[in-house]
């Protein structure tokens, strides 16, 4: 395998790749990778949650919104498609991070919306019923009862969105961003396997790390969860 990967006279793995310049570059790419993903997630959440609440509250919106996101989800499964779609109104957006963020936001939005809806739907009826009967107003019930109980499913959605986006963000390298994805393009141009591999490993490691962080956050936020030990 390593001979296969050692093309163009460069060995693989080639630890010499980690010189000062490349380490600096790696740090910059890390920042970009995190920024693009973070912004996409943030915007996705800001839009998805109100939308999901609306869908659950006003049942008439429920089916149309779910069907719409179902179709949209089919279309942009590879963010490549959206990246290019979003790239089209170049006059307005240009080759700037906001183009990538827009594309990725649409993607996270779909995952987050569906999971938030699923989460809110998973709240047991007898619990919401009891809340209403005790005199919760709808807004307070949403905030104090439904959201906390939907949290595990919502966080599961954030995990999927985060992990997937951390992988997909590399594709925006085609329009000049892409975080670690830039290493793919330059590595490809130079036929330098190590450079591409560093990009792959870095983005996967980051995804695993973020996923663990989110698992930890979920535990911290849902101390009542049944799936944990300590239940009698």
């Amino acid at each position: 395998m390593s001979t296969l990967l050692a093309q163009s006279g460069r060995p693989f793995p080639d630890w010499a790749w980690f010189d000062e310049r490349n380490v600096d570059r790696l740090r910059d790419l890390f920042v970009e990778h995190v920024q693009l993903t973070g912004l996409a997630l943030l915007f996705g959440l800001l839009i998805a949650i109100p939308l999901a609440v609306a869908a659950v509250r006003w049942r008439r919106l429920y089916s149309p919104l779910l069907n719409l996101t179902g179709v949209l989800f089919t279309i942009p499964s590879a963010a490549l498609i959206i990246a290019v779609f979003a790239f089209l109104p170049v006059q307005t957006f240009g080759l700037k991070p906001r183009t990538s963020v827009l594309a990725l936001t649409i993607y996270t939005l779909l995952i987050l919306f569906r999971n938030t809806v699923a989460g809110l739907d998973s709240v047991p009826r007898d619990v919401t019923e009891a809340a209403t009967a005790m005199g919760f107003r709808p807004s307070r019930r949403l905030l104090r009862v439904e959201f906390p109980l939907a949290l595990p499913v919502i966080i599961a959605g954030i995990r999927i969105a985060a992990v997937t986006t951390l992988g997909l963000v590399t594709v925006t390298a085609f329009i000049g961003q892409g975080g670690f994805g830039q290493l793919f393009i330059t590595g490809f141009q130079r036929q330098y396997t190590m450079e591409v591999a560093v990009g792959v490993v870095a983005s996967v490691l980051l995804a695993v790390l973020v996923d663990l962080l989110l698992v930890w956050a979920e535990r911290a936020l849902t101390p009542w969860s049944q799936s944990r030990g300590g239940a009698t």
Partner: peptide, 24 residues
């Protein structure tokens, strides 16, 4: 299907389960 169309639903479903799994 009516409740939550296919691909996303599967993803949500699986992730939820897997989060339970890893928690367990």
């Amino acid at each position: 299907r009516r409740g939550s169309p296919p691909p996303g639903a599967a993803a949500a479903d699986t992730a939820q389960r897997s989060s339970e799994q890893s928690a367990v």
